[in-house]
């Protein structure tokens, strides 16, 4: 039982970190909550389903389309909502929430309101320590870890990554280094969208595709930012594990229906007692 919780906890937490990382990047760079973040996951999941099960092309094309679609959505949200509303965070939050609801309606129009079960990314089941684990979930977790560590290295070591940190820590300082913050913003928004959509492909392996599937990942992302503070990548990883393990423990030991409730409870507790977050500090 304990081992099972450990394995499940690590698998779920890796995915949660991937879900939340784009959201925390956006929060870090513009102090904006992008409430349409869950829609990237929905778009990615449905794009994967559409390519594989409606068009009938190889799954890898579905994954690629999902990533490009997510990145394009990120750039579009930045260009059409965030930049015109420059500086007005509340307006951006309301607009992105409305966008999320519109996209949900669009999914209902295109795919119908019933939930869909996408084919697994990699078929089959593997047994680790007597726990049956779907290959697709194992692959998703490993891919998430590789992506997160590469992203961390990219932000720490590359010129563009340093420029991202610079814009997030001191926009004027970045400007006097000659960094064009619009260009950096577009890069960050496209990374955020692309990773969100990829997380959607992975996430669809856990649950099913449904028009309201954007809500759960959004709550996870908000929880990671609020509990973790303005997120560094490492902070995101840490908090994703707190939430992931909490959900697995609640699901296994108490009742599966309560897992979301506990996550939201954690948000409220964090807001009350640690308003700046456990790892609160203003950077990527």
């Amino acid at each position: 039982m304990l081992l099972q919780i450990l394995i499940q906890g690590f698998l779920l937490s890796g995915l949660y970190a991937l879900i939340a990382v784009g959201f925390t990047l956006i929060f870090g760079i513009g102090r904006i909550l992008n409430l349409a973040h869950g829609s990237y996951l929905m778009a990615g999941g449905y794009a994967f389903f559409w390519i594989g099960q409606i068009i009938g092309l190889p799954k890898i094309i579905g994954v690629a389309l999902a990533v490009f679609l997510g990145a394009g959505m990120g750039i579009a949200i930045y260009r059409l909502i965030v930049r015109p509303l420059k500086g007005d965070r509340i307006a951006v939050e309301i607009a992105t929430l409305i966008l999320a609801v519109i996209l949900q309606a669009a999914i209902v129009l295109i795919f119908g309101s019933s939930s869909k079960i996408p084919h697994p990314l990699v078929p089959g089941v593997v047994r680790i320590a007597d726990t049956p684990i779907a290959w697709s979930i194992l692959v998703a977790t490993c891919a998430s870890w590789i992506i997160l560590l590469s992203l961390y290295a990219f932000i720490r070591l590359s010129h563009t990554g340093r420029a991202m940190q610079a814009v997030s820590m001191d926009p004027k300082g970045a400007a006097i280094c000659g960094i064009d913050s619009n260009r950096i913003d577009i890069i960050v928004w496209s990374i955020s969208g692309g990773l969100g959509a990829l997380a959607g492909v992975f996430f669809a392996g856990y649950t099913q595709l449904s028009p309201s599937m954007w809500v759960t990942p959004l709550i996870i992302s908000v929880a990671v930012v609020i509990v973790g503070g303005i997120g560094s990548i490492m902070g995101t990883l840490a908090v994703a594990h707190i939430i992931g393990f909490m959900e697995v423990i609640v699901t296994t030991l108490i009742a599966p229906e309560l897992r979301g409730v506990f996550t939201m409870g954690l948000i409220i507790v964090a807001l009350l007692f640690r308003p700046r977050g456990l790892f609160g500090r203003e950077e990527i």
Partner: peptide
């Protein structure tokens, strides 16, 4: 307008 949580070296490299 330095970047407070970057190292001295990373500030210069930026």
């Amino acid at each position: 307008n330095l970047f407070p949580y970057m190292s001295v070296r990373d500030n210069l490299l930026t």
